[in-house]
């Protein structure tokens, strides 16, 4: 269920009482409604599902999660762990 992907807000405008953003996904852009993420501003990343942003990507949390993953990668190398898929 629920294919949602991160995209970057390029600009946001008010149309018919709704807040519409132009969102960049890789090399393409598409409109998405930003009414559920009023705090999100151009430059921010949002998770978009069927044309609606459902959450703003928290960059600090993303960095923290990724740093943890990287640490695990470093540890694996340092400890020379060779277990893994057969």
């Amino acid at each position: 269920m629920c294919l949602a992907i991160p995209g970057k807000i390029l600009e946001a405008t008010e149309i018919g009482g709704l807040r519409l953003g132009r969102i960049q996904f890789g090399g393409v852009t598409r409109q998405a409604y930003l009414d559920y993420v009023p705090e999100a501003q151009p430059g921010d990343y949002v998770m978009v599902h069927v044309g609606f942003a459902i959450s703003k990507v928290d960059e600090a949390e993303a960095q923290r999660t990724y740093a943890q993953l990287q640490l695990m990668g470093v540890l694996k190398e340092e400890l020379g762990i060779v277990e893994g898929p057969k």
Partner: peptide, 13 residues
């Protein structure tokens, strides 16, 4: 695969 094609494919599954 071009970045545009990838982006569209990610978006639309």
């Amino acid at each position: 695969v071009r970045e545009e094609v990838r982006g569209a494919c990610e978006m639309l599954g």
